[in-house]
Design a protein around this nucleic acid. Structure first.
Length: 375
RNA sequence: GGAUGGAUUCCCGAGUGGCCAAAGGGGGCAGACUGUAAAUCUGUUAGCAGCGCUUUCGAAGGUUCGAAUCCUUCUCCAUCCA
């Protein structure tokens, strides 16, 4: 159940009820593809840095350790000791990112495992079965994510196929949720809108999938090479045609700026590898802009990443120390920036929620963006 | 005291007459990354702002149109024999 608590322009402050607790939106889901936040971050750490939702991946967990293994162990929540909501991505993005290792047909996609080269078939039904075994809170529909530069005729065919896949996902998920063996019989399912950078295709697709019964609606296939302006205008072309009583999830986005712009345009859910990947690479977010802790200027910088930050890294360690750890390739050198970045994102979402409630979202956004431009 | 093998750009190390400011690796410096095949990838690393020019391959001389590469002497290092 999605409830809109407050609105500030198109920006929404909402709550989304799930069997694993209520999600306060807008929310940033912390990405842990293989049932782990990369950078040696545990689910115990996630509680400390304010993570509300964890995100894992269907394809990756199917390949290793295998969804049947996780099913036997009682589902993903028990497996990784996390009691808050988990969203599983369907493997649709891997159709895109593992290009070269796959073949797309009407029934589904044949992948070649990146782990051992084994051929794997995944279609809408398989993706739902795997996600049902994983027993995540929210499952994502199985889609194709065409590149933003794809030709119109290809995108039209691809989107039409994604629509057919969506309805097969819906049917299969309904069936699975009624099965006795199913761990989470209330598993929710989000649809995915596609259409590359063609606003009319996006709009038509949004209308069609709105009539199908889904618990939430995602905008996929963005932030894959197109400009920010194009991305924002695709959001604008899509959101108005999605159901008002369902949350909107912008997949894979993005930078703090992207998120602020998207919240303003009515998006509720986000996820992105940036805070984790950038963290591992020594890039950290602050209200004064991004820092690359590898840079020589931090060699003797005794300050925390950000003055006053309450994250585990800033409360205890200096930039100079973290730089040393990074240069020495110590695991802690990746862990501390990741903790900081996720804390930064989670905290920003908290501030966004508060700002919408207080109808000060625009001021908040403006101030945040100006601050971050300093560097 | 004698014999042999070495000394290369920040480090290791290739190069045995011109295509060499010199391979490759490391280190350094910087950049990229948006539903994670990412602890990954890219650029750069003698000087000058440049076609280019100037200084570099232990040191000093020499041979040659041309030398990191050949010759002479010296210095230092390693191993072996006394």
């Amino acid at each position: 159940m999605f409830k809109i608590i407050e609105k500030d322009g198109s920006a929404k402050r909402g709550s989304f009820e799930t069997v694993h607790g209520t999600i306060q939106t807008p929310v940033f889901m912390n990405v842990g593809t293989a049932a782990a936040i990369k950078g040696a971050v545990s689910t115990v750490d996630l509680k400390e840095i304010g993570t509300l939702v964890e995100l894992s991946n269907t394809y990756h967990l199917h390949v290793r350790p295998g969804d049947e293994v996780i099913y036997k162990l009682g589902g993903l929540h028990k497996f990784m000791n996390w009691d808050r909501p988990i969203l599983t991505d369907s493997g649709g993005f891997q159709v895109f990112s593992l290009a070269g290792l796959r073949k797309i047909k009407e029934e589904g996609v044949t992948f070649q495992s990146h782990v051992n080269g084994q051929r794997i078939f995944m279609g809408p039904e398989e993706s739902m079965q795997i996600q049902s075994n994983l027993a995540s809170t929210i499952a994502m529909a199985f889609d194709e994510c065409p590149p933003s530069v794809a030709e119109r005729s290809y995108v039209e065919d691809s989107v039409a196929r994604t629509t057919r896949w969506l309805s097969r996902c819906r049917t299969e998920m309904d069936r699975l949720n009624q099965q006795e063996r199913t761990i989470n019989k209330n598993q929710m399912l989000f649809a995915i809108n596609q259409g590359a950078i063609f606003p009319d295709i996006r709009k038509e697709h949004a209308k069609i999938i709105s009539d199908m019964k889904f618990d939430g609606y995602a905008i996929g296939g963005l932030a894959v090479g197109e400009s920010h302006a194009e991305m924002y205008s695709m959001i604008e072309a899509t959101v108005p045609f999605l159901p008002k009583d369902r949350p909107v999830y912008l997949m894979g986005v993005g930078t703090p700026e992207n998120i602020l712009e998207a919240v303003e345009r009515g998006v509720d859910f986000f996820d992105c590898v940036y805070p984790t990947r950038n963290g591992r690479h020594g890039h950290v977010y602050t209200n004064q802009g991004k820092l690359n802790l590898f840079n020589a200027q931090y060699e003797t910088d005794d300050r925390p990443i950000e003055e006053g930050c309450q994250c585990p890294a800033c409360k205890n360690y200096s930039r100079a120390y973290i730089r040393h750890l990074l240069k020495a390739k110590e695991m802690l050198g990746m862990r501390l920036p990741v903790l900081h970045n996720l804390y930064f994102y989670n905290k920003m979402m908290e501030e966004i929620r508060e700002a919408i409630e207080n109808h000060t979202f625009y001021e908040y956004k403006k101030k945040k963006l100006e601050g971050m431009k300093q560097k």
